[in-house]
Amino acid sequence: MRHRTVGELMAATPVSVRAGTPFKEIARLLDEFDITAVPVVDEDGRPVGVVSEADLLHRRATGTGSTTAAAIMSSPAITASPDWSVVRATRVMGRHAVKRLPVVDATGRLVGVLSRSDLVQLYLRRDKSIREEIVEDVLTRTLRLSPSAVSVEVDDGVVTLSGTVERRMLVPVVVRLCHSVDGVVDVIDRLAYERDDTVAT
């Protein structure tokens, strides 16, 4: 079962600024490219921080608008790798309360930017595509279950599982794997089981 990576979703031509970029130029770039934050890179193209709209507004509120990226950026930059799963990237965004992640290669150089809006695209997958992946990849290929054993319904990204599996311990595994499918918003578990293998005999 294959899941989308950061490298597949990121903007591959990222807007960035240098430490000495003036306040007004940063504000202009955010407006021109309709973005909420911009990475600050050093002379080798490695992110050293991020300037967000919030950083600009905070600096403006303090009355010191004429300054540079180095003075107002949040540092160090929280970065991602192109081969990260989108699940990992989403968790890092949530943990650090950021809306955009600079994406760096193995040498630490900026190669892209992943935004929350990029992640939202995953949830625009059609229900039919989600159902097909669950049936073909999760149930049949990964868990080797008979397609007739488990019924899968998908409505606006919400997956409802019903039917019967052989062992009770399979139920949480099926649910967890369905949750990991791109586009799944929630999983409703209505599965039954033939044998309770959680109880010692």
Rank of each mutant, 00 (worst) to 15 (best):
V6L: 05
G7R: 00
L9H: 05
M10C: 11
V15H: 11
R18H: 13
R18T: 11
T21P: 13
K24T: 14
E25W: 03
A27N: 07
R28I: 04
R28W: 09
L29W: 13
L30W: 04
D31E: 10
F33S: 08
D34K: 09
A37V: 04
P39T: 00
P39F: 00
V40F: 03
V40E: 01
D42S: 04
E43Q: 14
G45W: 02
S52T: 06
A54I: 08
A54S: 15
L56P: 06
L57V: 12
H58Q: 08
R59Q: 11
R59P: 10
R59V: 06
R60L: 15
A61M: 13
A61D: 14
T64E: 15
T67R: 07
A70E: 14
A71V: 06
I72K: 03
M73G: 01
S74W: 07
S74Q: 08
S74G: 12
S75T: 15
A77L: 04
A80S: 12
S81N: 09
W84A: 01
S85P: 09
R88S: 08
R88Y: 08
A89M: 03
A89V: 01
R91L: 13
M93N: 05
R95D: 15
K99M: 07
R100F: 08
L101K: 01
D105A: 02
D105I: 02
T107W: 10
T107R: 09
G108F: 05
G108V: 02
R109N: 12
L110M: 07
L110D: 06
V113Q: 01
V113R: 00
S115H: 06
R116T: 04
L119M: 02
Q121E: 09
L124Q: 14
L124A: 10
R126G: 15
R126S: 09
K128R: 14
K128E: 15
S129N: 12
S129W: 08
I134Q: 00
V135D: 05
E136Q: 15
V138R: 08
L139P: 11
L139E: 01
L139D: 01
S146V: 04
A149M: 10
S151W: 12
V152S: 00
V152T: 00
V154F: 03
G157K: 01
V159R: 00
V159C: 00
G163Q: 05
T164H: 11
T164Q: 14
V165R: 03
V173D: 13
V174D: 05
V174N: 08
V175C: 06
L177M: 10
D186F: 05
V187Y: 02
I188G: 09
D189Y: 04
R190N: 11
A192M: 06
Y193W: 13
A200H: 09
A200F: 13
T201V: 10
